[in-house]
Every structure is written in structure tokens, then in C-alpha cells.
């Protein structure tokens, strides 16, 4: 008897999305050429040089990415309002440039650097990752960025650097949401150093091949695809190497509900709602929620980081 293997549904989608990206890239380049003569300065502002050479990555998922509109109009970014439709409006006038990044703590090289200097000439990759929000919805997002570990190593962390802490810009005049004390500002996040050095962990500076929109965390944000979205801190101004575990904003606000690790885990529910399933944004109104995967589907790459740990306690 001949048993035919069911064709992998995703493979066609991979081709589709590749073609789509290829076409997008071609159109963009054609448009760039056409515009280059007339609007050089505007283009420079819209598309920084480091986004001109983006290579695909094997870490990308073959799933169909969400539309640019979904990704840029449905945002949890309390610095620009607690409604998910607010950041797109409230962050419109935010100008991230010039931006400085402070490196501090347990490293040989510390100091304050111009972000443009850090990014100039750096190799960028397109990483199409699943993003799973702690609120039980998810998207697929084509980020542009580079491994965080690659940058961290340049500052020569010492043997005491066991954790990394990240801090968002604190400026209520530019981030109106910070005028309300819904969270403790500035927003802080932290990772264990091995999590920070993991090749899946990236710093993103772009989306869909373009500069990262303000509402998505411009100019520089973290993306850790196997953790709930709130770990992926936006608009980073400081990175501190630490010997002790940093606290993170959501954990500070509700320690019983949000942990330090915040690894995506369908078996450990949020105290108030289930984490077993998720609504994929853009999937259509009658599409049922889909099962949430352990470590958001990245278990093969990251489960070993947590070997022997009780994930129910270390949620």
C-alpha cells in the first residue's frame, strides 16, 4: 500500500512569503533609485544605511508574517498609552534620533555611545519570529536586527556579569504615557547572561526591511521570541551588566502574575487566564485560537537553558 505523506502546508507559504519579500525588496529599491536624486536627506532619515544590506536567517519561521498594518496598529507600549491602538498615534511625533546607548556595570568597556556609531556597518538579518503576548494573542513579525550577544561581547563583560539589565528611555515630555504611573518608570527588563547571549535573542532596528516604527520600539528594541512579549523591551537607552538578578517592571507591579523568566509555557496559566491557547492576529474572525507551543515553538533551541528548573515556580 502506498501511503502518501501529507504535503507540508508551510512549505508553500515559505515560498510565497519569500517571493513576497523579494518583490517588496525590488520595489523598494526601484523606488529608492527613483527618489534618490530628489530627496536624499529624507531618504536618509527614513532608511538608515545599516538597513541596506539585510540577509535572511535560518532562524526565521516559514509562517506567513502579519501585515504591516496589524504589527503597527496593535501595540502594547504603555509609554505611549495603555490602549493598544494608542501608540500608533501617540508615538507619531517621537523622534528617536540622535540616540545614545549607555553601557554600564560589570564589563571592561563601559560608557555612553552614539547608537548610529554602534549600528553603522553592522550586518543585519531578517528574523521572522513568532511573538506571543502574555495576553494570549500572537503575531508573526519580520524583524530586522542582529544578535544581542554579538554586541554584548564587544564590551568585554567580566566574570561577574551574570545578568543583563535593560532600561527604556524615561522622558514623559516625549513619552506621554509616562505621565500616568500605571507602571514604574523607566521600564526595566532583565535576562540571565546565557539567555542574553543566545543566538535567538536579537536587538531589532527594523521591521519589514524598513526602519523600526516608533510604536514598535524605535530606535532599538530587544526581541526574545521564546518569552512573553513584555520581556522584549523597547526604546533601550541603557544596558547594564550585573552580578545580581535585576527586577523587571511587570514583575514589580504584580509579582504573583509576572515572573522574571516569563517563558512562553502553555502549562503554566496566568493566575487570571489560560495560557494554553492563543489568538493569532489576522487569522479571521471565525478561526479558533491555536494551541500555544512550549517556549513558543523554540523549545529545540532553548529548552536546555532551563534544564532541571521547576518552570511552575520560575514562571
Amino acid at each position: 500500500m502506498l501511503i502518501k505523506k501529507k504535503p507540508d502546508i508551510l512549505s508553500s507559504e515559505i515560498t510565497d512569503s519569500r517571493l513576497y519579500f523579494g518583490r517588496r525588496r525590488f520595489m523598494r529599491e526601484a523606488a529608492t533609485l527613483a527618489l534618490a536624486a530628489s530627496l536624499p536627506t529624507r531618504l536618509l532619515a527614513d532608511k538608515p544605511g545599516w538597513l541596506n544590506n539585510i540577509t535572511p536567517s535560518d532562524f526565521s519561521t516559514g509562517e506567513q508574517p502579519n501585515s504591516y498594518s496589524d504589527i503597527t496598529t496593535y501595540n502594547n507600549y504603555y509609554e505611549f498609552g495603555t490602549g493598544k491602538d494608542q501608540p500608533q498615534h501617540e508615538a507619531k511625533d517621537f523622534n528617536p534620533w540622535p540616540w545614545t546607548l549607555k553601557i554600564s556595570g560589570e564589563a571592561e568597556k563601559t560608557g555612553t555611545y552614539n547608537l548610529e556609531d554602534i549600528l553603522a556597518g553592522r550586518a543585519m538579518e531578517e528574523r521572522i519570529y513568532r511573538l506571543r503576548c502574555v495576553e494570549a494573542w500572537s503575531m508573526v513579525i519580520p524583524w530586522v536586527g542582529f544578535p544581542l550577544g554579538e554586541l554584548l561581547k564587544e564590551f568585554l563583560p567580566t566574570s561577574r556579569a551574570k545578568f543583563v539589565e535593560f532600561v527604556t528611555l524615561n522622558d514623559p515630555s516625549r513619552m506621554p504615557g509616562q505621565k500616568a504611573r500605571v507602571l514604574e518608570w523607566p521600564y526595566r527588563e532583565g535576562l540571565r547572561i546565557d539567555e542574553a547571549m543566545h543566538p535567538l535573542t536579537i536587538l531589532a532596528t527594523g521591521l519589514y526591511g524598513e526602519a523600526l516604527p516608533n510604536q514598535n520600539g524605535a530606535p532599538l528594541r530587544l526581541v526574545i521570541p521564546w518569552k512573553y512579549g513584555f520581556k522584549s523591551i523597547k526604546a533601550i537607552t541603557e544596558i547594564r551588566f550585573r552580578e545580581t538578578a535585576p527586577n523587571n517592571s511587570w514583575r514589580k507591579s504584580a509579582p504573583g502574575e509576572y515572573g522574571f523568566y516569563a517563558n512562553v509555557n502553555p502549562e503554566v496559566d496566568h493566575p487570571r487566564w489560560s495560557q494554553a491557547r492563543e489568538r493569532r492576529i489576522g487569522a479571521g474572525i471565525f478561526t479558533p485560537k491555536q494551541d500555544t507551543l512550549m517556549f513558543n515553538g523554540y523549545a529545540d533551541q532553548v529548552a536546555s537553558l532551563y534544564a532541571g528548573m521547576d518552570l511552575r515556580r520560575n514562571f
Binding site: 496598529t73 496593535y74 493598544k84 491602538d85 494573542w137 489568538r279 492576529i281 474572525i285
Partner: peptide, 16 residues
């Protein structure tokens, strides 16, 4: 909004 008529829309997460 559900039918995308008259400029109404239910946004990125219509069920929510």
C-alpha cells in the same frame, strides 16, 4: 466594522 463598511473597522483583533 465587521463588514468593513462606511470607514468603520474592528482593528487588528476584531474578536477582542
Amino acid at each position: 466594522g465587521a463588514f468593513g463598511m462606511a470607514g468603520f473597522s474592528l482593528g487588528a483583533n476584531p474578536v477582542e
